[in-house]
């Protein structure tokens, strides 16, 4: 624990925590997107998949247990990620109390890297909305517990809800793009031979996730996916 505390205590440690939690979150996002692609295979396949998530690990784990373990890991990761992000961001603001009159730095580094904080906040707001929408159904006008496919398609048939998803995917893409690249850097995936590939890989991953996620609301709105 004292090691973990030292890790938390130093800026590099927090950066490493960010990156490790980033890996978990990215892993989730990618898996989540791939899982959701099942929606294109029809209602049964998708509901089966949703149910599968809950019975995963049986007979060793009780119904829903695996899901809960995953949820806890995710939640912890999100909390650490946000806490570290907050502390680091405040520290940065403190580190330059007087701003420059002119600052060309804006041109030097990417739009993505500058919007990490705002991107993160938007993602957080999105996730809250998203949970209320698809998991608890609180903001879903036509929520049927247990029928994931129904909830999914009917959810996106509401244009405002679909728009929220579509718009949220842009900051998510940017956050992932810089986040993934930055994570490779922090975790020292650093090899002269491959360094020039890090940017394209990060961009590819971000693009894949964004396009995959965008395909869902668009497919519903355009009528490809129907109840």
């Amino acid at each position: 624990m004292s090691r973990v505390l030292t890790l938390w205590g130093s800026s590099v440690g927090k950066k490493i925590m960010m990156a490790v939690t980033g890996v978990i979150l990215i892993g989730f996002i990618v898996a989540h997107m791939v899982g959701n692609l099942k929606v294109f295979m029809g209602a049964d396949a998708f509901n089966h998949y949703a149910e599968g998530l809950r019975s995963f690990g049986a007979p060793f784990l009780a119904h829903g247990q695996a899901l809960w373990i995953a949820r806890i890991v995710l939640l912890v990761a999100v909390v650490i990620h946000i806490a570290a992000a907050t502390v680091l961001t405040l520290q940065s603001k403190r580190a330059r109390p007087v701003a420059y009159k002119k600052y060309a730095g804006d041109m030097v580094f990417s739009y993505a890297s500058r919007t990490m904080v705002w991107g993160g906040i938007i993602i957080l707001l999105f996730v809250i909305y998203h949970l209320l929408h698809f998991t608890t159904g609180d903001v879903h006008p036509d929520f049927i517990p247990g029928n994931a496919y129904h909830n999914f398609v009917s959810g996106f048939q509401s244009v405002p809800a679909a728009l929220v998803y579509i718009l949220a995917m842009i900051p998510l893409g940017l956050h992932l793009y810089h986040g993934f690249w930055s994570m490779l850097q922090t975790l020292g995936a650093n090899n002269d031979k491959y360094n020039h590939l890090r940017r394209p890989i990060a961009a590819g991953l971000a693009l894949l996730v964004t396009l995959g996620n965008l395909s869902f609301p668009i497919a519903v709105l355009s009528g490809v996916l129907k109840l």
């Binding site: 800026s11 590099v12 950066k15 030097v108 850097q185 922090t186």
Partner: peptide, 17 residues
Amino acid sequence: VATHDTELFGHCTNHGA
């Protein structure tokens, strides 16, 4: 790194500037 932090430098978030 500990001194870097106590000297009130900000943290690196890999901007590359």
